[in-house]
């Protein structure tokens, strides 16, 4: 049993080196500066997140204020829409980092065709 496992591991190892030599597998990249290069900078991510959060709130405030103005019910629509806007902002950020969905980068999309039309 033990010997069997050892053989198997050795075989996997030889298979991996052979595949690498033939260029079938990409070489394992050291997760160093390269990984940092491909991901956007912390500043850019922070800016994106803040814009997403604030923009939903701005839209919600504008709608709430506008409806209040329209119906003369100040401040009730505004009060109702501000939490909704905050939630929508969080939803926007969640969409950005949601697991399962690949980030909207063309590099990721090349091997995955877009999902079929669903509803």
């Amino acid at each position: 049993m033990n010997k069997n496992q050892g053989d198997r591991a050795a075989f996997e190892e030889r298979l991996r080196t052979a595949r690498q030599r033939q260029g079938l597998d990409p070489r394992p990249q050291p997760p160093g500066p390269d990984a940092a290069d491909s991901s956007p900078s912390a500043l850019a991510v922070g800016f994106k997140v803040s814009v997403e959060l604030v923009s939903a709130l701005v839209v919600a405030c504008a709608i709430g204020w506008g409806l209040d103005r329209l119906f003369g019910t100040r401040p009730w629509f505004l009060i109702g829409f501000v939490p909704l806007g905050g939630a929508a902002g969080v939803l926007n950020v969640w969409r950005m980092f949601a697991p399962g969905k690949p980030a909207p980068r063309p590099a990721d999309r090349t091997d995955h065709p877009p999902p079929p039309a669903g509803h």
Binding site: V51, S55, A56, V58, V59, I63, L84, G85, R95
Partner: peptide, 15 residues
């Protein structure tokens, strides 16, 4: 919330 999220694209894209 979904509608607001959709509308908030206007702001986030332009800003």
């Amino acid at each position: 919330i979904e509608i607001l999220s959709y509308l908030s694209r206007i702001i986030s894209l332009s800003v």
